[in-house]
Structures are given as C-alpha cells and as structure tokens.
Amino acid sequence: MKANKTQIMKKDTRAQVGIGTLIIFIAMVLVAAVAAAVLIQTSGVLQQKAQSTGKQATQEVSSNLMVKNIEGVRAKNNATSMSSTIDLLKLKVGLNVGSAPVDVNQVVVSITDGTTANNLVYAGNTKSYASVGGSDGKMDDFSDSASTNLGLLLVNETTVSAAFNNSDHYYTAEKIRDEDSSFSQSNPVMNTGDLITVYIATTSDTAVSGGYDWIGSTDTSAALMTSGLDLVPRTVVNIVLTPESGAATTADFVTPSSYGVKETVALYP
C-alpha cells in the first residue's frame, strides 16, 4: 500500500510595505470620500428639485376656478327701452373641491366676441398697468364698495401714463359667500367654499350712443364707456380665467337668437 501523502501549505506572512503602498491607500480613501460627497450633494439637489416640482404640479392641478353660471344684463332707460346688446356679464365663480386659495387680484380674464379681444385685470391690481417701478395701476377712485367699483367700471376712465376706458382694461368682483371673511375689495382671496360674482363690462358702441341710464341697479347716467365688444344676438363668446397658478378655466357660449323683452339673459351653462 502507498503511504498517504501529506501536503503542507506554506504560510506567507509577508505584507506589502513602503511609501508607495501608503500613497495608493490614501488615494483610494480620498477618491471614495470625493465620490461620496458628490453623491450626497447631487441627491440633495435632486430631492429639493423633486419637492419643488411636486409642489408646483399640485398647485397646477388643484388651484382651479369654476364658472357656475353666466348672466348677461342689458342697458336700459326703463322696462321698454333697452339696449340691443348685452352690456354687462355677471359670472358666478367658485373653486373646485380641494383647490388651493386663489388670489383674484392676480387672475386675468380674457374675453372675445370673435372680433375684439380684451384682457382684463382686477380693478384693485396696483401693478399690471402701473408706470415703471410704480404701484399706481389700479382703477382710479377704486374703493371698498363693490357697487361703487362696478359703477366706475362702466362709466369712468383711468389715467396712468395715458387715459383709457375702465371697461376694456378691468373687471370687478363682489362676494356672495365668504364664511372666513377672506374676500374684500382690497384683498380678494378665495378659499374653498367661497363664491363670488365677477363683473365684466361688455358695453357696445350702440349702448354708449343710446345714452342709457341704468345697467341693472347701477346708475350709468354719467355716460357709459365702450368696451369695444358687441354682444348682439347669435354672438360666439369665449371667456378664459387664468389664475396665478393652476389651470385656466374656459367658458364658451353663444348668445340667444333674440333677447326679446328680457333685461337679464341666461347665457351659461
């Protein structure tokens, strides 16, 4: 029989030593530290951007105005003497469920009758039409009274660097429901559950030349100012409400084929 062979493993107890090995070790540690710092910094920046983007995206989909209905009002002298055009629009506006608060002061209302287009800002907005570096852009004589502001919208001018009609530059608003008192003429903020009326002047040249004394309960005997719009029967009207953040809201309608003897006409929905 053959004797069992025994294998003996040689132990190597020597290690790499010297300044070269130390330099390589230190270099590896430094590279790992730099890489870790870059990764940490990059991940921090990405996190901040992700949070910011998420917040903006949430605002875009949640801050939505909603037009409940629209009524048109004709200028008049009395019950039998009325304008042939719609001269004031009353938009009942609320917020969608879950919407973030909306500052009406920053909402732009665009309206067109297919021929003329007006881009309107809130009458209390101090910046949109202001002189360079100034804060004199709000409607002249703007006050804390919604009814007074509506009258000024229909019959007055505003002068900044030049004079222009209020009716084709501004809109006004009045609260209907405001449980938390967040809405005022100077600080018109809407929260969920709030309901307001937005007034848009659509006074035509025909109404101006007719010299009508009233639009609804508003005294216009001081002489109406034209808005450039002409809402005769069968007019296609497009209205877009664009808030500071969030999706724009659109309301399209066609005026009736005849206004008959109606002073107030239901237009939307």
Rank of each mutant, 00 (worst) to 15 (best):
G44N: 06
A37W: 11
T53P: 00
T53L: 09
T53F: 06
L22G: 13
I26R: 04
I40Q: 02
A32I: 08
A33P: 04
G44L: 02
G20F: 09
S52W: 04
V38C: 03
Q41F: 03
L22H: 13
V61G: 09
K55N: 11
V38D: 05
A15S: 09
T53G: 06
V61I: 15
D12I: 15
V31F: 12
T21H: 15
Q7T: 08
T53K: 11
Q48Y: 05
V29D: 03
A15K: 12
V38Y: 10
V38K: 07
L22K: 15
V45C: 00
R14M: 05
G44R: 08
Q56H: 04
A37Y: 10
V45S: 05
F25M: 08
Q7I: 06
K55D: 14
S52C: 01
N4P: 14
T21C: 09
M9V: 08
Q51C: 02
I26A: 14
S43Y: 02
V29I: 14
L22M: 15
S52N: 07
K55A: 14
E60Q: 13
G44I: 02
Q16Y: 12
Q51R: 11
K55T: 13
E60A: 03
Q41K: 04
K10Q: 00
A32R: 01
S62H: 07
V38T: 10
D12K: 09
Q51G: 00
K11F: 07
S62E: 09
K55W: 12
E60I: 01
Q56Y: 09
I8Y: 12
K11N: 05
A50K: 04
Q41S: 06
M28E: 02
I8T: 13
I26K: 05
A36T: 14
G18H: 05
G20A: 07
V34A: 11
T53W: 00
K55H: 05
Q41A: 09
A37D: 09
I19Y: 10
I40R: 01
I26Q: 10
M28D: 04
V61N: 13
V29G: 02
S43V: 01
